[in-house]
Nucleic acid binder design. Structure first.
Length: 589
RNA sequence: GCGCCUGUAGCUCAUCUGGAUAGAGCAACAGCCUUCUAAGCUGUGGGUAACAGGUUCGAAUCCUGUCAGGCGCGCCA
């Protein structure tokens, strides 16, 4: 089993361009401009001209935002207020001057209104037909709408889950998995060449503990009077260890009863294989597929550990004390030195971690490395980064995503986890009970840095209360409309006059659809999936409102066709967004 | 003791890296289905954004301090 793990070498790259990717590129470059990008140069020119006449050196960045309140225009800018600060001048006066300058530059067919409001906001309104035209672009891009090329095919390695093969995945791993997998998706949508990686930690003392645990359970099969690890620390108490022991017994009968090194090694090996298989199955149930399982073992067998020690030594960054090898972190700007090779000769976890990151950055030359960790790993990160940097890697290429813990709630009470008895709620339990869609969404709907409350009652709810269904229902509803149209023999045209869409809810829906590319881009900047989930909730809400306000079937032909175009685009965006989150978009519910 | 995360409506969370009147869902109450899926929509009530200062035209957002909760601080991973 373990033999099937693809070991990583320098050859595992993603340099080929798939046909899909070429098509995506094609569509992305087809997008003419966003409304904001139409406006930015105009605004910037006005600001530059203004600064010149006012003798201002520092020209501020112009930013354009979408006001919360639609009465404040389609977009607005605060640049006049920013300028007011350095000029010590009334922001409204500046705003008026800027507006005057911009008036001569804008196309009145595109921008219908530009005005000063409030403390010095400049509010801008677009002609309605612009929305219809841009909607056509969204429709044309289809499954590629939301993709961009800002990643320039740069190679990025996203490492997630990376649980030790010493047991079953628990709920916290589930959050890690959902976040990591979705970040990988987000980066792909932003034009990065992504490698999904699992650091398979199969070399440390935890593995020895698993071996001992399995062996003890194995002995118990033949002699029930043996007590399980009464005063032995570090043993694994979960029932799955008994399952593994039974596998050992099936294969070796009672021939391992002598407590030899070799027999322990066998138990360890079978335990590792069993756990790996279990983890792989759990990942599969969550629709996650890693490209690379990186074996920690390989760092030893391929001499990478030795190489890193030699490198550190040559730079005078290690020293020996009390029979151990210390990493001189105090010479790298950190406060405490740490042991990297114990006096027993075994490395501590820090050393392989450093070698692993060295491998990713220097040997495999990834342009970016994303580590997704739970909050409990936070302490070692600065050490690893400092060491890898000392070895010549660029620390800015490392992005660490730390997610906080998950609390399971049932009937308003916290579900307690017990490490001792091993009676945990596993990730498998969640997936089995709620399915991959609900499980993934619940992990993604909160910001990564906040503590997540997973409400088991809410997840079990097969009703409108469950937020996943709200999104999926919007998708299914659209599918249903299109189906009904087909059943009634209504022909849906390829090209519709989308500029006929002028109803307020129609415009709201278009605006939402057009916002999607920005949402995807921002999610990549922040390495934060939540924005996508939040966006989809809004999109679904606007669609449901549209569904309530506007009919499609039975409307006058041209309007009906335009609305078909609108809901097709909405369906596509729901689909794209759900795909990023790794959640299915059902045609029927 | 030190480091990181969090504190926003009764509950769970948003608030687009400092903008205009802080928004959703759930819970409560009141409405909307002979018409494309009511797993939907509309309305009402609900706030000293933990607290105290500071920075400026402007703070839930940035800084300092205090309080509360979570996670770490090993020759464990």
């Amino acid at each position: 089993m373990i033999g099937s793990i693809r070991l990583c070498s320098t050859s595992c790259t993603h340099e080929h361009l798939s046909l899909e990717r070429i098509l995506i590129r094609f569509y992305v470059t087809l997008q003419m401009y966003t409304m904001k990008s139409y406006l930015v140069p105009i605004l910037r020119n006005a600001v530059i001209a203004f600064c010149k006449t006012s003798n201002i050196e520092a020209i501020p960045e112009v930013s354009i935002e979408t006001p919360r309140n639609p009465e404040h225009g389609d977009v607005s800018t605060t640049v006049a207020m920013v300028l007011a600060k350095s000029m010590r001048k009334n922001p409204r006066d500046i705003a008026y001057e800027l507006v005057e300058m911009m008036r001569s530059m804008i196309d009145i067919d595109v921008i219908t209104d530009i005005s000063v409001a409030g403390a010095g906001f400049i509010n801008i309104r677009f002609a309605k037909h612009i929305y219809g035209e841009r909607l056509r672009e969204a429709l044309h891009a289809g499954a590629a709408w939301g993709r961009n090329t800002t990643g320039h095919e740069r190679r990025v390695n996203v490492e997630y889950v990376s649980a030790n093969p010493t047991g079953l995945l628990h709920v916290g791993h589930g959050r890690n998995a959902a976040i990591g997998d979705t970040i990988a998706n987000i980066l792909e949508w932003n034009g990065y060449a992504v490698t999904r990686e699992y650091y398979f930690n199969n070399a440390g003392s935890q593995m020895a503990n698993l071996g001992r645990s399995v062996y003890m359970r194995y002995l118990q099969l033949w002699d029930s009077s043996i007590e399980f690890g009464k005063d032995e620390p570090g043993l694994y108490h979960g029932d799955y260890v008994k399952d593994i022991a039974r596998v050992v017994a099936e294969r070796y009968a009672d021939t391992l009863k002598e407590p030899t090194e070799e027999n322990l090694r066998i138990c360890r090996k079978i335990g590792e294989e069993w756990c790996f298989e279990a983890i792989r199955k759990t990942m599969q149930a969550m629709n996650i597929r890693h490209d690379v399982y990186f074996n920690e073992d390989s760092l030893y067998t391929e001499g990478k550990i030795e190489e890193v020690i030699a490198l550190l030594r040559s730079r005078g960054l290690v020293y020996e004390k009390d029979g151990a090898l210390w990493l001189a972190l105090s010479r790298m700007g950190l406060s405490d030195d740490r042991v990297i090779v114990k006096s027993s000769g075994e490395p501590t976890y820090r050393l392989p971690d450093i070698a692993y990151h060295y491998d990713k950055l220097v040997r495999r030359k990834f342009d970016m490395v994303v580590d997704v960790f739970g909050a409990d790993h936070i302490a070692t990160i600065p050490d690893v980064i400092a060491a890898v940097e000392a070895l010549g890697a660029d620390r800015s290429k490392i992005r660490v995503v730390i997610h906080q813990f998950v609390t399971l709630m049932k009937d308003g009470e916290q579900v307690k986890m017990s490490k001792r008895t091993g009676k945990n709620y596993t990730l498998d339990d969640l997936l089995q009970e709620f399915g991959a869609d609900v499980t993934r969404f619940f992990f993604l709907m909160r910001g990564v840095s906040t503590h997540l409350e997973f409400d088991l009652n809410l997840a079990a709810e097969q009703s409108e209360k469950n937020p996943v269904f709200y999104l999926q229902y919007a998708h299914a509803r659209i599918a249903s409309i299109l189906r009904t149209a087909e059943e009634r023999g209504v022909h849906i045209q390829e090209h519709a006059e989308t500029t006929l869409l002028t109803h307020p809810t129609e415009i709201d829906l278009i605006k939402c659809i057009l916002r999607f590319p920005e949402v995807v881009e921002r999610a990549a900047e922040l390495l934060e999936p939540q924005g996508i989930a939040e966006f989809l909730r809004e999109l679904a809400a606007v669609f449901h409102k549209f569904y309530h306000d506007c009919r499609i079937l039975g409307e006058e032909e041209k309007l009906m066709q335009a609305r078909f175009g609108l809901v097709k685009a909405a369906k596509q965006v729901l689909n794209n967004g759900l795909r990023i989150l790794g959640i299915t978009a059902p045609e029927k519910m």
